[in-house]
Amino acid sequence: MTDFWRRNRSWLWPVIFILPAAVLFGVVIVWSSVQTLWISLHSWDGMGPMKWVGLGNYVELFQDPQFYVSLTNNVIWLVLFMLAPPIGLGIALLVNQKIAGMRFAKSLFFTPLVLASVAVGVVFTWVYTPQFGLLSLVYGAFGAAAPAVLSDPNAVTFAVVGAALWPQIAFCMILYLAGLNSLSEDLIGAGRVDGARGWRMLVHVILPQLKEVTFIAIAITAIGALRSFDLVSVMTQGGPFGSSSVLAYDMYRESIFSYRFGYGAAIAAVLFIIMLFFIVWYISRLIKAEREA
């Protein structure tokens, strides 16, 4: 035994090192995710025996009007979230100056990113309160009464996305600031010699150099939009009447409140398949970059 150990320890140690992380991640994260796909083919209340229903849950899901409401909301999230990278870039350009006090200003711009999403949800619920919130103050300045955005089925999703954009913009801003700090001075100098300034400089010289950052910002923002759950749960609980729900929240509600674990698993599976597109896109580019390096 000791002899075996001595001869093989050069590869046994690495195996021992990686095992705890691999086993824990493999069992809790990967295996659980796979199991959900299996559960989605059953009818199950979470306690009794599981009953095989094949694709029944999916058939029911595709006939459920709520599914299309939530899916549409997910698309609204995805489209509006694409405002985060350009606005983040805008703020990054604004604060990328070395002036006294700018460092402090930068860190204040970052703040929404480190706030708990529940805190962001409570803050914006307060902002949107019709009688006395911050929004009513703005409307009041124009002599108008503020609409109750969180109880208006047509406005509610936009209001929730507005809250979610706050930290997302801060995140994109951090990425772009790092990108702006690693620009090639030679290319900028050459651009200036050629007479490029302002907007044309940005489009033709700066943005091409920020391609990698832009890719990361867009991919992560897209994944974040599809994962949205916290703010919907805190601000509206999917209401009024399911009009602000998203797939992630539907899944939670069907499983935890209605004990329809099989149906919930089917919603999770559909969400996963939609996200898979972005995840695979992101990872394949990461690995390609890794191979080239």
């Binding site: 994260i29 659980s32 199991q35 797939l247 992630a248 939670y252 698993a265 999770a268 996200m275 972005f278």
Partner: peptide, 11 residues
């Protein structure tokens, strides 16, 4: 990057 919901029930 997985959505939390995909592992919720088994976890």
């Amino acid at each position: 990057f997985l959505p939390a919901q995909i592992m919720m029930i088994p976890v």
